[in-house]
Design a protein around this nucleic acid. Structure first.
Length: 745
DNA sequence: AGCACGCCGACT
DNA sequence: GTCGGCGTGCTC
């Protein structure tokens, strides 16, 4: 991860033999350079094919790069060329992956090398394959003569005389790792080279599918079998069995000897999803995300490149793995904004997954209970097919959703649960069932102010309030990580005991519940209490075992969990996501609230969802209460169409940032002056801004935004290239480009 | 991304 | 008088 990697040139030393009249090849390096560099091919190598991974000297170091496709640049004089240092012992990049790199670079206006960097993110995997050693019994060792623990180890090896890893061996023998180590040191065990991991043996049979599932699965299996390019939306409510259906498509790819890639948002918390793959195929899929590091990361990359990984389940970065024979890409929860990478190369993994599938000539499946408007528009245009799963027979059905009008039944002063919601929680707990309260805000209170002088605690690096975290006794900025202790007195007027928390976070809701539902066992789930897959699984088990009565959580609890005893979901502030005028605020609110509501009543008992809102008439609330999703989508689509917004128009953002406010303003003005067209408007496009970004100072950077809004069919990239080339931006400011922005921060 | 070269403050 | 801050520019 991070850092373009120097690698050990397995080949010649770093001297510079003159390159004389030999062939030259373009080599793309994992650096933000404008394009590939030309290199001389040492004598006797032959001409390396495009995609070949090579070690190339650059300045004083040697980098891993890829021989690129297309003609060498040719303008660099022969004498300046340096010879390639070595061919790397790793499979060459495939043509579709090289084309993907070019495609993403062009689309995002990033240097191709910056994109290549994502595809060569595992430097260790590019050098000589790791020789793993395993342990076998030394010759002539007689198990019977050994002490008990050692005898058990010997027995395991006698039973299965293949090389074992030390950890596996200790586990199988039921002894500590020390025993195995001591036996090796004593010469009772010897290390031998272990063969590279064979592909997992996949087996398993399809589960019993409903007729609708079976029909959808058959369509998708056929598409995979025939390698039919094109995308299909697979949608249906929570519990309609979408996963089982796409797993059949995965099974088809595997049966044909091809690989399948399944992209998920934030995989770290989806242990339950991995378990479903295991249940279906009898073996774990290869897993890829940022928390997979070290030897595991290297082995997985290698297994993918060598075709030994039939199924890969991964976060967005898995999109750039070197599959030699990909047969299917699935994007699960395709509406999730986590698929959009914001920093560095700003790409949307869902959209680029469709590109990779297209370039590879294979089918793609987009899966969601609440598809994005982009995807629905593509279905409407006939660009994607659609398979819709109806609600499943025999399931609990969709929960009943009701809005609580806070204007009519407000919470008591200083509290946040309205009487109807509090009553419903009390009844649920009284029946011995579980309830979940959802509030997408960490900490105790989002704002602290002084009752004496009105002072508000603000982050020194960002335009944001500091959030009180009462357990940690700190005021924290959720944008830059700044934290300070809660002071005993107001720093402005010196008054003591005058600081007042304003508004709720999950900690405050938990405090209120402890008071109101004495004796209830409460679990708080937010990124402050749940750190990664392990704790998440722990919480899930506690909830599943009914060791918890009331769950209070942030967005984290909305994701894919199945809690069979949970029958009530209360949304503390259903209006929260609607503030701020974001283009997709309504769509996203609907998706999140629908998803968290889906946690209620999945077993035999009906679920109930209560939404606390000040605006029960808002289209999002009406859609959730009535369940009339189609109408909501139609209204939202009509608004977007009328305004020329995505998915009916295109957007690109230019984000100016600088530690110096004047430089940021100057750069923004320079961009404005250089805007394409007459005064920023032309055939099918218009430039909006500059305006301060919603977080006008973030991590000490002053930020300004300009927005290019264009009709579909306008070559946005061409406009942006010309625009950026024209603009004279002061050095003290930088400009980032975000094509198809998802977030407007 | 590194790494080198190149001009202005606080130390032996 | 030097060590060293990181601003700017180059790497086939």
């Amino acid at each position: 991860m991070g850092g373009a990697s120097t690698i050990d040139p397995a080949g010649p030393d770093g001297k510079r033999p003159a390159a004389s009249g030999r062939s030259r090849v373009p080599v793309l390096l994992p650096l933000p350079l404008a394009g590939p560099y030309d290199y001389a091919v040492p004598e006797g190598w032959g001409v390396p094919q495009p995609g070949t991974l090579v070690a190339a000297p650059l300045g004083g170091r040697v980098l891993a790069g890829a021989v690129w496709h297309g003609a060498p640049d040719g303008t660099v004089p022969e004498a300046k060329l340096r010879p390639l240092a070595a061919l790397l012992p790793a499979p060459a990049m495939t043509a579709p992956l090289m084309r993907l790199v070019d495609w993403v670079a062009r689309w995002t206006l990033s240097p191709p090398g910056a994109v290549l960097r994502m595809a060569l993110s595992v430097p260790a995997a590019l050098s000589e394959p790791r020789v793993r050693s395993g342990l076998v019994l030394a010759e002539g060792v007689e198990p019977a003569t050994l002490p008990k623990a050692r005898a058990r180890v010997a027995a395991v090896l006698a039973e299965a005389p293949v090389p074992w890893s030390a950890a596996d061996l200790a586990r199988a023998a039921g002894v500590g790792p020390g025993v195995v180590k001591a036996m090796r040191d004593a010469g009772l065990l010897v290390a031998v080279a272990m063969p590279e991991g064979a592909p997992p043996r996949l087996g398993g049979a399809p589960p019993a599918l409903s007729p609708a599932q079976a029909e959808a699965a058959a369509v998708l299996r056929a598409a995979v079998a025939e390698r039919r390019p094109g995308a299909t939306l697979l949608d249906g409510v929570t519990g309609s069995g979408k996963t089982e259906v796409y797993l059949e498509a995965v099974a088809e790819a595997v049966a044909r000897g091809r690989q399948a890639l399944v992209l998920l948002p934030e995989i770290a918390l989806s242990a339950q999803v991995i378990a479903r793959f295991r249940a279906r195929f009898g073996a774990d899929p290869h897993v890829w995300h940022s928390e997979v590091t070290g030897a595991r990361r290297r082995d997985t990359w290698r297994a993918v490149a060598e075709g030994r990984a039939p199924i890969v389940v991964g976060a967005r970065s898995a999109l750039f793995l070197p599959f030699p024979d990909l047969g299917l890409i699935v994007v699960d929860e395709e509406h999730e904004t986590a698929f959009k990478q914001e920093d560095g190369v700003a790409y949307h993994a869902r959209d680029m997954a469709l590109v990779r599938a297209h370039l590879t000539g294979i089918p793609a499946i987009l899966v969601s209970a609440t598809p994005s408007l982009e995807t629905l528009a593509n279905v409407a245009r006939g660009r994607h097919a659609r398979l819709h799963l109806p609600e499943r027979h025999g399931s609990a059905g969709m929960p009943r959703v009701e809005a609580i009008d806070l204007r009519a039944t407000p919470p008591p002063r200083g509290q946040f649960l309205s009487p109807p919601l509090a009553a419903a929680i009390g009844e649920t707990l009284g029946r011995g069932e579980q309830a979940l309260l959802f509030l997408n805000r960490r900490g105790f209170a989002p704002l602290t102010l002084c009752r004496g002088c009105g002072h508000r605690f603000q982050c020194p690096n960002c335009t944001a309030w500091l959030v009180e975290h009462r357990y940690a006794r700190r005021l924290e900025c959720h944008h830059c990580g700044h934290a300070e202790p809660v002071p005993p007195a107001c720093p402005e007027c010196g008054a003591e005991g005058s600081l007042t928390p304003v508004g709720p976070g999950v900690e405050r809701i938990a405090a209120e519940c402890r008071e109101r539902f004495a004796g209830a066992r409460i679990a708080e789930m937010s990124s402050d209490t749940v750190h990664g897959a392990h704790t998440a699984a722990h919480y899930a088990a506690m909830i599943g075992n009914r060791e918890v009565d009331l769950v209070i959580g942030t967005q984290l609890v909305a994701k894919g969990w199945h809690f069979p005893h949970l029958t009530l979901v209360g949304v503390v502030d259903a209006d929260l996501g609607l503030a701020g005028g974001d283009l997709r605020a309504a769509e996203r609110s609907f998706q999140v609230l629908h998803q968290v509501g889906g946690r209620a009543g999945r077993a035999d008992r009906p679920g109930r969802v209560l939404l606390q809102t000040w605006a029960p008439g808002h289209p999002v609330m009406r859609a959730l209460v009535s369940g009339d999703v189609d109408r909501f989508v139609a209204e939202e689509m009509a608004e977007r169409r009328a305004g020329g917004w995505p998915p009916f128009g295109r957007l690109a953002a230019l984000i100016v940032s600088s530690p110096d406010q004047a430089a940021a303003d100057e750069a923004a003005e320079a961009l404005r002056r250089a805007a394409p067209g007459a005064d920023g408007a032309g055939e099918g496009f218009r430039v909006l801004g500059p305006a301060p970004a919603p977080l006008s100072i973030l991590r000490g950077q002053h930020r300004r935004r300009l927005l290019l809004k264009a009709a579909r069919g306008v070559d946005v990239q061409a406009l942006l290239w010309a625009w950026l080339a024209r603009a004279e931006v002061p050095r003290a400011a930088r400009v980032d480009v975000d094509v198809d922005p998802v977030s407007f921060l």
